[in-house]
């Protein structure tokens, strides 16, 4: 059923063609296709393909980012119908993500957001220059499994420690894992500030997030 439509959806994400994505999403609604099927059997397959090809060095960051944007466009069209049906996309876990206070570097954090979303995590991206209190408040509000902290400057790295401390102070640490990243960040630094892990790049962040979820008792 709808195999041709699903194939076109997959291809539209691979092409990063958001207009086509929206059009196909709308078409699936018109045909009465379950939006979850449209996502899982159509669009997500495109994202997965782009991720695989990126891993192989055959596709590049602009392909990945446009694929992520296309996926977002698809979900935006399908979401009202999903809400109406009361269906929810199965999520691998909930991540609150942002660049720490004092730091306005966005690229690395956005790549992590794209990859986590594409993999199936529910990601709340708080943007850049995010104070520790905001991380804590959002983590509590959405019952986050993981908080991801990006810092690109040696001068803003210490703000990652402040978020870990704030989560501890607010009693969230037992159920929230913390992962850190950014150019100057190291494994040793992650250990020093009491974070649960460090990812070298966006791919590593996904692997780390999966591992952290296993640590929380989720299936691998």
């Amino acid at each position: 059923m709808h195999e041709e439509l699903f194939a076109a959806m997959r291809q539209s994400v691979i092409d990063g063609d958001t207009d086509r994505v929206r059009q196909l999403a709308q078409q699936s609604l018109d045909l009465g296709v379950d939006p979850l099927d449209a996502i899982n059997l159509g669009f997500v397959r495109g994202v997965n393909y782009v991720g695989e090809q990126f891993g192989l060095g055959e596709m590049f960051l602009p392909d990945l980012v446009m694929g992520g944007e296309a996926m977002k466009a698809a979900v935006a069209v399908l979401e009202p119908e999903m809400t109406r049906r009361g269906s929810r996309r199965a999520s691998l876990g909930t991540v609150v993500l942002g660049t720490v206070k004092g730091d306005i570097h966005e690229i690395g954090k956005t790549l992590v957001q794209t990859m986590l979303t594409a993999t199936g995590f529910l990601v709340h991206d708080l943007g850049v220059d995010v104070p520790a209190e905001t991380f804590v408040a959002r983590a509590r509000e959405v019952d986050a499994d993981i908080v991801g902290l990006s810092a690109l400057l040696t001068t803003t790295m210490p703000a990652q420690r402040l978020v870990v401390q704030a989560l501890e102070r607010e009693g969230l640490r037992p159920r929230v894992r913390v992962m850190v990243g950014g150019a100057p960040v190291t494994r040793e630094w992650a250990v020093e500030i009491g974070a649960d892990g460090y990812g070298e790049d966006a791919m590593a962040a996904v692997t780390l997030a999966r591992t952290l979820m296993v640590g929380k008792g989720a299936a691998p």
Partner: peptide
């Protein structure tokens, strides 16, 4: 008039 302009590597970011 100075700078450190650079390209962004599309494979590794």
């Amino acid at each position: 008039w100075g700078g450190a302009p650079a390209i962004f590597d599309m494979r590794t970011g």
